[in-house]
């Protein structure tokens, strides 16, 4: 099944520069519809009102972290319960990766990353595009 590049993508990061970088890279990859949230709480609220095709989230955020966001989405009951979720984070300890996987993450990118890694991981969770 072909990937719908017009799907809504949600980028969650408390650093505005990082959101901007990921948004621009997504635009270059052909994904024009990108929403942004500054932390897990705002993102969780947004997933309650809109269907997303992909969520790319940082881990280290206050007041709600990326891991708590992931757990909130997977434990929820709306359309986004099974949305592909990629963690993009500087948290690169084995313990973190295991906990994220147990919480239902689809892929995990460690910062700093490049455009090729982002593309590869997105393809791995939503299919080739």
């Amino acid at each position: 099944m072909p990937v719908d590049k017009n799907m809504q993508v949600l980028v969650v990061d408390d650093y505005s520069t990082m959101r901007r970088i990921i948004r621009n890279l997504l635009n270059q990859l052909g994904f024009p519809n990108v929403d942004e949230a500054t932390d897990g709480q705002q993102a969780l609220s947004m997933t309650g009102t809109k269907k997303y095709g992909l969520i790319i989230s940082d881990w280290n955020m206050e007041p709600m972290s990326g891991l708590e966001l992931l757990k909130g989405i997977r434990g929820g009951s709306n359309d986004n319960k099974t949305v592909p979720f990629i963690m993009v984070t500087a948290e690169s300890k084995t313990e973190n990766v295991i906990l994220a996987k147990q919480a239902g993450v689809n892929n995990y990118i460690v910062k700093p990353f490049n455009a090729e890694t982002l593309k590869t991981k997105i393809s791995a969770v939503i299919g080739d595009f």
Binding site: W59, N60, S65, L67, E68, T89, A90, E91, S92, K93, T94, E95, N96, V97, I98, L99, K101, N107, Y108, I109, V110, K111, F113, T117
Partner: peptide, 28 residues
């Protein structure tokens, strides 16, 4: 406990690489 997990970025030697993360995830 959630906050105690947020200690990154780790210094080289204290972290695992993207390749190692990929292998770890593939093992699930």
């Amino acid at each position: 406990e959630e906050q105690k997990l947020m200690n990154g970025p780790q210094l080289p030697g204290n972290a695992i690489s993207q390749d190692e993360i990929d292998k770890l995830l593939a093992g699930f």
